[in-house]
Design a protein around this nucleic acid. Structure first.
Length: 504
DNA sequence: GTCACCGAAGGAC
DNA sequence: ATCTGACTCATTCGG
DNA sequence: CCGAATGAGTCAGATGTCCTTCGGTGAC
């Protein structure tokens, strides 16, 4: 298949808003793919390279050669080119990488260059990602989507099952959990309160402690252990303590789901930054990370993932010592659940995850089987500047810079940005408002538009963390706009001290 | 030749 | 990670 | 009983903070 064909379907997909039309276009493309290129085509249609890392980003693509007149690149040639680029390392590799990029892009037409740039930066923006590709595979291979999704969950990716889908539903059905091969993680949706979460599940539910660490999936067969993150990155070598814990379990093969976290000598969880830093470093480290499990998918040759949660938890409890399990409450009572959640938060944890007792373990979507509930903080902050948006927010002032009042100096101290929580109406309002408040003669001239620090905005966020980026030494986690507060002046905004007081 | 520093990439949430 | 808007499918409402 | 309105479930896209690793480069 020519890259040009792929770029053309991407353009077709981007041109329509109808999902069905997108799926149809993707399926038509998949049908024309040769067997040998099916995996690459599948990956490319989903807007992703097959290489996890290439060393390329937006910066490496700043000066590209002029496009070719005629389309000649094949999909497989492109794949091999990225393989070569990805394997480059060591002194001089950046130069070699740049040369390889020039070579590849020089052979691409203008349309192909645009598509290539998109995959490299992960911004194809055709309105279709993995999920629609799964539907397209189902359509092209004439198999049920659920079969494709299920196989992809066990195989760890859609790409891995694309070819199998064309062998039929039975072939997909034969894909199962293999100890040692990470599966796509089950994700949680969220709710604003325990009452809401329990109501959604109806009846008795499990209320699990939600730890502020890194999600881990651990596979063990005899002494072989594999630890994978949420995106299935293998971090086994970085967490020897976790390997030890799992090797000591009285079983020959297990697949566990849990969270890795560091705990202080006082028994309280350390800030997320510490466990994240530890799990990211490859060498030795003084920081100790321990696993806390909340699910068991496989035990000694028996798959448990299809069993109700209640059964999986019984098996978990029998296998894993309490010290390496997440604390939980099983209840149908909102007051009891609320009480448990506040104790959990007081103990320094992030919140809770409410789970249906009869729900099987199922990856691939954020269903209502697991619902997270986290406390939300709120502050009234001052807008210091705004950035022009891109994509669907082009032409709107979008990302706002936030600051808190410093009563000592009278200044407003910046502590982060946010673009979340804004409706289109709010976006329209704020581009008008901040254009008026701009302190530069032509607000359209620059990406960042400074404004008079007078507009107060109510911001919701999950927590506060230490920062080396921002002058106040603190930054907000997951800040989002609740509403603009025209009833408050900047002098009434919250202070930087109030923010620092929230530091864990 | 080494070392400190910087920016990009990539990955956690 | 969070949040909004858009597309689909299913159900309810109005005549 | 039929078509329109409404609601629930999903998906994609916009873009956040922090941290580590690695190559390039300038200072000595």
């Amino acid at each position: 298949m020519l890259l040009a064909d792929l770029a053309a379907t991407s353009a077709t997909v981007a041109a329509t808003r109808s999902r069905k039309a997108k799926v149809a276009a993707l399926a038509a493309c998949l049908e024309t793919a040769e067997d040998a290129e099916l995996e690459v085509v599948t990956s490319y249609l989903g807007g992703a390279l097959r290489q996890r890392r290439t060393g390329l980003g937006w910066r490496s693509l700043t000066d590209l050669p002029p496009p070719a007149q005629d389309a000649s690149l094949t999909v497989l040639e492109v794949h091999r080119a990225f393989d070569a680029i990805a394997s480059l390392a060591g002194p001089g590799s950046q130069g070699a990488r740049a040369a390889a990029v020039r070579e590849l892009f020089g052979r691409a037409t203008a349309a192909e260059q645009q598509w290539l740039r998109g995959v490299v930066t992960g911004e194809v923006r055709q309105g279709a990602l993995d999920s629609l590709v799964q539907e397209a595979i189902a359509l092209a291979a004439d198999v049920p989507v659920v079969a494709v999704r299920r196989a992809a969950m066990f195989a760890g990716s859609t790409v891995a099952v694309a070819r199998l889908a064309f062998d039929g539903t039975d072939a997909l059905g034969a894909v199962g959990l293999v100890v040692g091969r990470p599966v796509l993680p089950m994700l949680a949706s969220s709710a604003g309160s325990l009452a809401e979460a329990l109501a959604k599940l109806g009846g008795t539910a499990v209320v699990d402690t939600k730890l502020d660490g890194v999600r881990i999936q651990v596979h063990r067969r005899d002494d072989d252990v594999v630890i994978a993150t949420r995106t299935l990155e293998d971090i086994t070598a970085r967490l020897p303590e976790v390997v030890d814990v799992v090797r000591r379990l009285p079983a020959s093969s297990v697949v566990l789901d849990g969270e890795a976290m560091t705990v202080g000598p006082d028994g309280r969880p350390r800030p997320f930054q510490e466990t994240a830093s530890r799990t990211a470093t490859r060498g030795a480290s003084a920081v100790h990370v321990a696993p806390y499990f909340f699910d068991l998918l496989h035990l000694d040759g028996r798959d448990l993932h299809d069993l109700p949660l209640a059964d999986r938890l019984a098996a978990l409890d029998a296998l894993v010592p309490a010290a390496h399990r997440v604390e939980r409450l099983v209840t149908d009572d909102v007051a009891a659940a609320d009480d448990f959640a506040s104790r959990v938060v007081d103990a320094g944890h992030e919140g809770v995850v409410v789970k249906g007792l009869d729900v099987p373990w199922e990856a691939g979507r954020r269903g209502n089987g697991w619902i997270k509930v986290k406390p939300v903080h709120t502050l009234d902050l001052v807008v210091l500047a705004v950035e022009w948006g891109s994509g669907r927010r082009k032409g709107w002032l979008s990302n706002i810079h936030l600051g808190a009042r410093d009563p000592e100096t009278g200044d407003v101290v910046m502590l982060g940005k946010t673009f979340k929580g804004m409706s289109d109406r709010m976006l329209a309002w704020q581009t008008e408002r901040f254009t008026e408040l701009a302190t530069v003669p032509d607000p359209r001239a620059d990406w960042v538009v400074p404004v008079q620090p007078t507009q107060v905005v109510e911001i919701a966020f999950d927590g506060v963390q230490r920062s080396t980026t921002y002058p106040g030494g603190v930054a907000l986690r997951f800040a989002r706009v609740v509403r603009y507060r025209d009833d408050k002046t900047a002098a009434e905004a919250d202070t930087i001290d109030a923010v620092r007081a929230l530091l864990p």
